[in-house]
Amino acid sequence: MARKITYQQAVNEALAQEMARDETVIVMGEDVAGGSGADGEMDAWGGPLGITKGLYSQFGDRVMDTPITESAFIGAAVGAATAGLRPVAELMFVDFMGVCFDQMFNQAAKFRYMFGGKAETPVVVRTMYGAGLRAAAQHSQCLYSIFTHIPGLKVVTPSTPYDAKGLLIQSIRDNDPVIFFEHKTLYTLEGDVPEEAYTIPFGEANVTREGSDVTIVTLGRMVHVAHEAADALSSDGISCEVVDLRTTSPMDTDTIIESVENTGRLVVLDESHPRCSIASDVSALVSQEAFDSLKAPIRMVTAPHVPVPFADNLEDLYIPDAAQLQQAVRTVMGKD
């Protein structure tokens, strides 16, 4: 039975239900309980934004605070995954990948192939990403394209509470390493979420709005920006189809191409930087596979190729918005 809960509650519920179902699921990360070794309350934080709050109280030492040593604990999560556990490690901000990337891209991602198909590494790394909290250059990036580049990793970017729960449960049950991106501005978003556990398969994009004139391919927080723009454009008689990728690895190229074949126009909306990005990747895909369907050049709407700024006015300028997207749509429609 579905009821409305937040994205944050959906993540927490997915973790709790999977921990209850499978005792090999453990959660580790910085302050995922909070209070370890201190004199006050245990389970004090549940992570800096309280996402895992309450899990320690339910599952005790299967919820493990870690030292602030991402190399060690992300690596330990990877090692434990090869040895019978299903660890869910929290990398507080994806920007911190700089101090543990080896454990993900040289270790977890490679084991299966490099060991001749005999390794299974069912690890999930949950991580916060995205601009919008005035957190500046080292706590605000959208680095999913870097992980998407690496064969052996699966990359998940849910946009709604429903997707967050179903994709996280799928991530935990999946036997390959998964990095699960949670946009920090989506945590308070409410949506219908079934009480029961459920999964959403990877590699199935979600057409969140059907339309006939322009395909907007997007992901994560930007799905909502796309809908805002599409609503505005519909009153001008421009019909937008919105494709939420849901997972960038695997990527549902069929749905992208099918949609562009129907609309003949593509705008890719991505909060990340433009170079070597999901936006450029999707654009290249469509150029190669559906060029004959295109009635206009592809447009990419992305953040600029700069670090995320701190000052509020600059950060607001940095994040792609509905106005920019509308402009791009009008351009491909020849109505600018």
Partner: peptide, 22 residues
């Protein structure tokens, strides 16, 4: 696994030890 990354193994061993313990 042998490991092409110098220092790659010890975090993995911690994980294997954690799994054995849990």
């Amino acid at each position: 696994g042998a490991n092409g990354i110098v220092g790659g193994g010890p975090p993995l061993a911690c994980g294997a030890a954690l799994a054995a313990k849990k």
